[in-house]
Structures are given as C-alpha cells and as structure tokens.
C-alpha cells in the first residue's frame, strides 16, 4: 500500500490547512486601494505623478534588495511587496515637481534608515515611508514645499512655484493677521477640494479617491476602521471646537479634514501593521493621539501640516500601548448569567 505513496509522507503539528492569506496578498490589497488616488494624481498633476511614483518604487526595491543581500547578508525578501508599498506611500506624500534625486535619497532613508537598521520588515518602530518623507521635509524644506498648481497634464515640473497648500495659505494668512474670511477667499471650495483640486503632494489631494481606497481596505478586511476613523474624528472634533469658539481664527473642521495629508495619513500610513497597535482599544488610543498632535501642530506649530509628525510620535508609543492594552482574555471576568 505504501508503494502508492511515492514520496515520504509529511508529518507536522496541527493545523493542517491554511487560509489563502499571505503577506504579499495584503500588500497587493493596499496597492489596489491606492490606485484611485494615483489616477486622480495623474489627472491633477500629469505624468509627473507617474515618474515620481515609479522612481520611488524602483529605488525602494533596489535599496531593499541591495541592503538585504550585501549588507545584512540575508535572503532578500523584496517579493513580499512591503517595499513597493513604502515607495508608493513615500511618492504620494511628495510634491510632483520634486527633483528625482531627492526621491531616490528619500527612498534610501526610508528603506535604509527607517526599515533595515531595525532588522527589516516587522521590526521597524517607525513607518518607513514617513521617515523618508520627514527626512526630506526637514532637510530640503524649499523643494518639499514648492507645490505646483494642479493643471492636469500641462503641469510644469520645473518652474511651478504657485499653489501653496490650503493649510500653508492659512498659516501664512494668520501670520499676517488676516481674518479667516479673507484667507478663505484664496482657497477653493470644499467641493473642489474633495476631488483633489488644490495644491499638495501628489497622492494626498483627492479625498474622494482615498475614501474609495478606504472602503476597499475595510471590505477586504485588510485594516479595521479603528485607526482612520478615530484620527479623522479627533481632528474634526478638536478643530470643530476651536472653530465654534473662534471662527475668525480657525478654519472649519471640513476644511481640516479635506486638506493636507490627513486622509492619506489616517488611512494608509497610520494603519501600517508593523507600526500600529494590535488591539482595538490600543488602536483607538493611537488614533486619538495622532489626531490631537496633528491639530496642535496645525494650529499652534510652525509647520502647516502635522499629521506626519503625529504618526511618527505615536509610532514611538506603540510598544507601550501594546503592553498596556491587551485583548480581553476569555474567562478573565467571571460573569454568570
């Protein structure tokens, strides 16, 4: 009878079946969810979107492969797709007219410093894409805050100096002690902003496209609602309170939600598995923290946008959150009824 089993039979501990899920599939899911924002990026800023994203993705892959193979002497794991996601997210948080060597430098920092120094995928405490982005933002503030005005395929990549972001316009206006009404005249309507018709990084402008991605991620059970909803909710709540108290000095919560990187950050960056808490309770604490820091930086800080700092700061708290917010154990509280 055993002759029929031509090879040795396998013995392993249970379970003997496995779900179809894999790291690769999760990463592919995230990439699919980013497609709508990518399409809007191309429509708003032209082919530059494609170039910046392409350069970021390729350089992230190359750096990951080279570092793993030659520096860490490990089996390269570029096929898991995490480097692609990092590249796309990094590109999406950059302005479209950025010099391409800065994109490469950002990728090197994202993968080299943000990920590999800690031991690669799964061990990095900070979101690699944000590490790259913040590094560029602090080191090259001029290039990183020169936004082209969205003109579709006609967007010039070299000499565009127009189109500050709406958040930048507000910061500037408040500094010149203009009232909110006058500032708002320089800014497009919320409806236009919803479709991404404003200055900004190439992937963060279109709220509606990002929302489609969010729905996809939730439907595919790649992420849970906790982190994005609490971040956006916190931002809306606190900007709303300030807006009600002093409407002349503060923009409306709708404005705060639609501008800057709030939605991209909340949906795609804060939810990065490796750098976010693992239990629903922890995720809510994490989200509220990010929301608060974002609002504080936007309203009181020197920078117009704060979500990237919010996420990075809260990333540092994740191990602490994880050790304090354990899942509720079965049989922990004895309830009979």
């Amino acid at each position: 009878m055993y002759e029929k089993i031509n090879k040795l039979i396998t013995v392993s501990p249970s379970p003997h079946v496995h779900s179809a899920g894999s790291t690769q599939k999760l990463m592919t899911g995230v990439l699919i969810a980013l497609i709508p924002a990518f399409v809007i990026g191309i429509i708003m800023f032209g082919w530059g979107t494609l170039i910046v994203t392409g350069v970021a993705v390729i350089s992230c892959l190359v750096f990951e492969y080279v570092i793993q193979k030659y520096l860490l002497k490990k089996e390269p794991s570029v096929t898991d797709g995490s480097a692609v996601v990092t590249g796309v997210l990094l590109a999406f948080s950059l302005p479209v007219n950025i010099p391409f060597w800065l994109v490469i430098l950002g990728s090197l920092v994202a993968i080299g410093v943000g990920k590999m120094t800690f031991g690669g995928l799964g061990n990095n405490p900070f979101n690699p894409a944000l590490v790259g982005r913040v590094f560029l933002f602090i080191s090259f503030p001029v290039q990183l805050t020169t936004w082209p005005a969205p003109k579709g395929f006609g967007t010039s990549l070299t000499d565009a100096i127009t189109g500050a972001t709406p958040l930048g316009i507000i910061k500037e206006g408040l500094r010149n002690s203009d009232s909110m009404d006058t500032i708002m005249q320089n800014i497009r309507s919320s409806k236009e902003m919803l479709y991404g018709h404003m200055g900004g990084s190439l992937g963060e402008v279109a709220a509606i496209a990002l929302a489609i991605g969010f729905i996809y991620l939730i439907m595919k059970k790649i992420i849970t609602w906790h982190i994005p909803i609490t971040i956006l909710g916190t931002i809306a709540l606190f900007t709303g309170i300030m807006w009600l108290i002093e409407p002349t000095q503060n923009a409306s919560p709708v404005f705060h939600l639609l501008t800057g990187g709030a939605i991209l950050g909340a949906i795609f960056m804060a939810t990065d598995y490796v750098t976010s808490p693992m239990t629903p309770k922890g995720m809510i604490i994490f989200g509220v923290g990010i929301g608060l820091i974002t609002v504080v930086i936007r309203r009181f800080g020197a920078y117009p946008e704060g979500i990237q700092f919010g996420i990075l700061i809260m990333n540092a708290f994740v191990p602490l959150i994880n050790s304090y917010f354990k899942p509720k154990r079965f049989g922990e509280e004895v309830k009979n009824g």
């Binding site: 090879k7 040795l8 039979i9 396998t10 013995v11 392993s12 501990p13």
Partner: peptide, 22 residues
C-alpha cells in the same frame, strides 16, 4: 533511514512531543 518528512517548527522538543520523528 528517514521514513517520513517532518514539516514544522525546527525545534527538537516540538518534534519529540509530537511523534517519533522523521
């Protein structure tokens, strides 16, 4: 001779607790 193929976590105690080994 090996009579079967062990496919699980690479740890002697896990194998020992499971069965005779490969």
């Amino acid at each position: 001779p090996r009579t079967n193929f062990y496919d699980g976590a690479s740890n002697c105690t896990i194998v020992h607790n499971l069965y005779t080994g490969d």
